[in-house]
């Protein structure tokens, strides 16, 4: 089940606030994207397909330990392959499509969902991947980046919901505990699953896709 904040869920001031927070990141991502595609026009189509791949990934149902079905966010793999600023734009478009085509998430909550899934998730993934890479344990770096990006996404979502809906008794803290508990049940096992899945994809790319990975390096360098 998609765990983006649903359409119409956030009160207007909070929806507007998260839109405002997401905009600078989106603008930085757009500038980065404009520069990349100006210098390497051939990457324009590749980025479009990369976004489509992220969408496909997010439409993928994977079994969760809790018995329910959930889907990966794709932010970890996306950030590792395409870099965090490009991933902000691609993630934003993916969220937009999910909202209007699949009714996952929403237009009014797009800003909030972008901050959690297209800004914080990729930044966490990128930072962890880059920090762990010098240790030489690439698979561990990929696993940790994907799993923790997933967790970070849902921690931010829980904070966003707790800020918007503080409990009548206990305020923000009680509300955060409530939303955190809801997410912990489904998202901790899912984060581990997504980490493992990302390592499998990474192994496949390492084994059979060296030239393609070099092309993706080009996006990194320009990022």
């Amino acid at each position: 089940m998609a765990m983006h904040i649903a359409e119409g869920f956030l009160p207007f001031p909070w929806a507007a606030f998260w839109w405002l927070v997401s905009l600078p990141f989106l603008l930085v991502g757009l500038r980065s994207l404009a520069r990349i595609t100006r210098e390497h026009p051939e990457l324009k189509l590749l980025l479009g397909l990369a976004g489509a791949f992220t969408f496909v990934l997010s439409a993928l149902k994977i079994p969760s330990v809790t018995g329910s079905c959930s889907h990966p966010t794709g932010t970890g793999l996306g950030a590792i392959l395409f870099g965090p600023s490009v991933m902000t734009v691609l993630g934003g478009i993916v969220l937009l499509f999910q909202a209007v085509l699949l009714a996952h998430g929403g237009l009014t909550t797009l800003g909030a969902n972008m901050v959690s899934m297209a800004v914080v998730g990729p930044l966490v993934a990128w930072w962890i991947f880059r920090s762990l890479l010098p240790t030489g344990r690439t698979r561990l770096a990929v696993f940790a980046a994907a799993a923790l990006a997933d967790l970070a996404t849902y921690v931010v979502t829980a904070v966003q919901l707790a800020l918007a809906f503080p409990a009548a008794e206990g305020g923000f803290g009680a509300s955060l505990a409530k939303f955190g508990a809801i997410y912990a049940v489904t998202q901790v096992p899912l984060a581990i699953t997504e980490g493992l899945l990302t390592v499998l994809v990474w192994n496949w790319l390492q084994a059979y896709g060296k030239p393609e990975l070099k092309t993706l390096q080009l996006i990194h360098q320009e990022n």
Binding site: L49, V56, L57, I62, L197, L200, V201, G209, E212
Partner: peptide, 14 residues
């Protein structure tokens, strides 16, 4: 599933 996704990404790029 993981290896299929890897293959899908490579097909995507091609």
């Amino acid at each position: 599933g993981g290896t299929l996704l890897g293959a899908l990404l490579l097909r995507t790029l091609a």
